[in-house]
Computed example of a mutant assay.
Amino acid sequence: MSRYSAKLLGFGDNVVDIYDHLKTMYPGGNCVNVSVYGKMAGCEKTAYMGYFGDDDRAELIMDTLGKIGVETVKCK
């Protein structure tokens, strides 16, 4: 259950930080992070709107947002 009735939309970029020496990728980008942290802070509904690529990096971001509960239905 959400703590606040606020709704939040992050609109814009998404990126993946790649750490080759750790063989790890982390999804992010300012707009993605705002949506995620809004959800973590207790917003009723958060969404991200932007463009995704068609590679494994885009899949990582979309899967992670889905698991966290950030809506992406308006993304291209």
Rank of each mutant, 00 (worst) to 15 (best):
R3A: 09
G50A: 02
V32N: 03
G50H: 04
K39R: 14
T24S: 11
M1L: 09
L60H: 00
A47S: 15
P27R: 05
V15C: 14
V15H: 02
Y19D: 12
T72Y: 01
Y37V: 11
V36W: 02
Y26H: 13
A6Q: 12
G28W: 01
Y51M: 05
S35Q: 04
M1Q: 10
Y51S: 11
A6W: 15
D54Y: 04
R3P: 00
V34T: 14
G38C: 05
L8P: 09
K74A: 12
K39E: 02
N30E: 13
S5I: 07
I18C: 08
G29R: 06
V70P: 06
T72E: 09
A6T: 15
L60S: 02
N14L: 00
D63P: 00
K23T: 15
G28M: 03
Y37G: 06
T72F: 01
K23P: 06
M40N: 13
C43G: 02
G50C: 06
Y26L: 07
Y4E: 09
A6R: 10
A6L: 14
L22F: 14
S5W: 01
C43Y: 09
L9R: 05
G50N: 03
R3Q: 11
G66P: 09
L65Q: 06
D54T: 12
V34G: 01
N14K: 00
V73F: 13
G10V: 03
P27N: 09
V16T: 14
A41R: 13
K23F: 08
L8W: 04
F11S: 09
R3I: 11
K23Q: 15
Y4V: 07
E71S: 12
N14S: 14
Y51D: 04
K45Y: 13
I61V: 15
D17T: 12
T46I: 06
K74Y: 15
V36E: 05
V73A: 14
C31R: 08
H21D: 13
T24G: 00
L9Q: 08
M1P: 11
E71T: 13
S5G: 15
L22W: 13
M40V: 13
G42R: 08
D54Q: 13
